[in-house]
């Protein structure tokens, strides 16, 4: 296994610092928006964490999806590590999205949840699947059969994404109107874009640090388990 232990603390430290700086800049430096066209103009500052959380959780879900495929196709141990890390990171950052989104929605549009919002619905669904996987990994005995079932559920979660997108689009056609999150990409100030970019980079660095951290935890657990087995064998001789 690759040794990532040296990267863990530096990546996490840099990530945390960057994320905090983003929050500070977002609150105190980023420009205000026009209070005539926004119902809750200060609430827009949530964007500096909400959007990076969404991008990072997307990465995490992608790792979960790819890991499920690798496990399913080849029973690859590395695939399984990707499933465990992807589900944990997906849960962590996905929770961030489904907490910040509705709070912002309630402030700006008076509506915490829009069944017609494809992104919010799919993030909620994937976060629910990630929560299921994380809880199951902690409660079920590890083994090939458990991994098969959980990888299947991981894949199931992904096939639900287009199903959810279809269902949400149909719903939105019937109930047009409220959209929780406007597309952030149109007509943005350069300063807003800068802080958003900093937030994205910081969270990605933090994400990389947390992935390395979890990878090292996995390696350490394996090493300890192997050593304990060796000690068990020697004590029986």
């Amino acid at each position: 296994m690759r040794d990532v232990s040296h990267a863990v603390v530096p990546l996490i430290t840099v990530g945390i610092i960057g994320t905090i700086v983003t929050a500070i800049l977002g609150f105190f430096w980023a420009p205000a928006v026009d209070s005539n066209s926004w119902n809750a103009p200060e609430a827009y500052r949530i964007i500096y964490w909400h959007v990076p959380f969404a991008w990072v959780s997307f990465l995490a879900f992608a790792i979960l999806f790819l890991g499920s495929i690798f496990w399913y196709a080849k029973r690859s141990d590395f695939g399984w590590v990707m499933v465990t890390i992807g589900s944990e990171m997906g849960l962590l950052f996905g929770l961030g999205v489904v907490i910040s989104g509705p709070i912002w929605g309630a402030a700006e549009w008076g509506v915490p949840w829009d069944w017609g919002d494809v992104r919010l619905n799919t993030y909620a669904l994937l976060t629910a699947v990630a929560l299921f996987l994380v809880m199951s990994m902690r409660s079920q005995p590890d083994g090939e059969e458990t991994r098969d079932t959980l990888a299947a559920i991981g894949l199931f979660g992904f096939i639900l994404v287009p199903i959810t997108a279809m269902a949400t689009t149909i719903w939105r056609n019937r109930h047009p109107g409220v959209i929780i999150i406007e597309t952030e990409e149109t007509g943005m100030d350069s300063e807003i874009r800068l802080v958003l970019f900093l937030g994205a980079i910081s969270l990605m660095v933090l994400f990389a640090g947390l992935v390395s951290l979890n990878y090292e935890l996995h390696s350490l657990r394996k090493q300890i388990s192997d050593k304990e087995s060796k000690i068990d064998e020697e004590s029986m001789q």
Partner: peptide, 11 residues
């Protein structure tokens, strides 16, 4: 209502 409280709650 400016939404400042909500932003703080989120962060």
């Amino acid at each position: 209502m400016t939404g400042e409280t909500e932003a703080i709650i989120v962060y």
